[in-house]
Design a binder for these strands. Structure first.
Lengths: 143, 143
DNA sequence: CACTATTTGCAACTTAGTTGCAATGGAGAT
DNA sequence: ATCTCCATTGCAACTAAGTTGCAAATAGTG
């Protein structure tokens, strides 16, 4: 993905284009798994980013619907962008997370309407507005 | 539920019967929603329990499969027991959590095999071993 | 270029949860 | 009932993730 496309995404979400935001978004766009604050810090590597700034950047992205947060089993946050095939991020309320028991990576992908409908009326009297499905197992790379 | 039944559950899970465990299990058994460490401390009230002991008690219960932990959106742990109709706890890998957007209570209930099957093969190459479904919405009491 | 609102960096703080260790106590054996 | 051993408990100090306040820097607009 070109640098200009990263900028375009930021502009589309009404965010000022800054070096940090570009760097962070770039990392997220090129990852197929959800990343923690520490993962992102590592990936950025050299030109170290202040931890507070990174938290704020991620929270801003999340508030604008550009990425979303997943709380892990060990009570950390993971952050992931969801891109449609055309590389434009979509904000999605209904999605699934697959957590690999072996490598502990978290994969994130949308869930079909068809799969959702089966769950929608689980219990009398509970009005379901959005949902997340967490799957634990073994990812293709670890099998 | 009688005090002797609480003891029986502990024994059944190979846990020594102690006053603290009895108290904590009693609180969990009588709650229809998942409780945080702080919730449990509050419910116990007077005869204050050391926070470390409570964490250890909850983790022990969790390891033995007597209760299970849910990570909340605000990165706290909630703890819940799952009872079958006959009031014997079941250790269940596949279950759903319903989080009320209004009162923020978390309800926990098993998911039918039928509902599960729809999700099991979401993505090629991912071997699903267990799953959790999170539903966000409005609980009956808040409608 | 100049101006303003937003973003960034630093230091200090908060809070959930953990670790180490000594004291206590449950429950099976005698 | 008492002894003994090992699991459990309580306390203090610690860790680590994430937040807050504030001053300095900077994007974007005219």
């Amino acid at each position: 993905m070109l640098q200009s496309e990263i900028s375009d995404i930021l502009k589309e979400f009404n965010l000022k284009v800054t070096p940090i935001r570009t760097t962070v978004l770039n990392v997220l766009v090129h990852s197929d798994v959800a990343l923690s604050h520490a993962d992102i810090t590592d990936k950025i590597g050299d030109e170290s980013v202040d931890k507070v700034t990174l938290y704020r950047t991620l929270n801003t992205f999340n508030e604008k619907g550009l990425i979303h947060k997943v709380a892990t089993e060990d009570r950390n946050w993971l952050y992931a962008i969801m891109l449609k095939s055309n590389k434009i991020p979509v904000s999605e309320h209904d999605h699934a997370h697959f957590i690999c028991n072996s490598c502990e990576k978290i994969f994130c992908f949308p869930v079909s309407q068809h799969t959702q409908s089966g769950i929608a009326s689980i219990k009398e009297g509970f009005k379901v507005l959005e949902q997340e499905i967490r799957l634990h197992g073994i990812c293709p790379a670890c099998q």
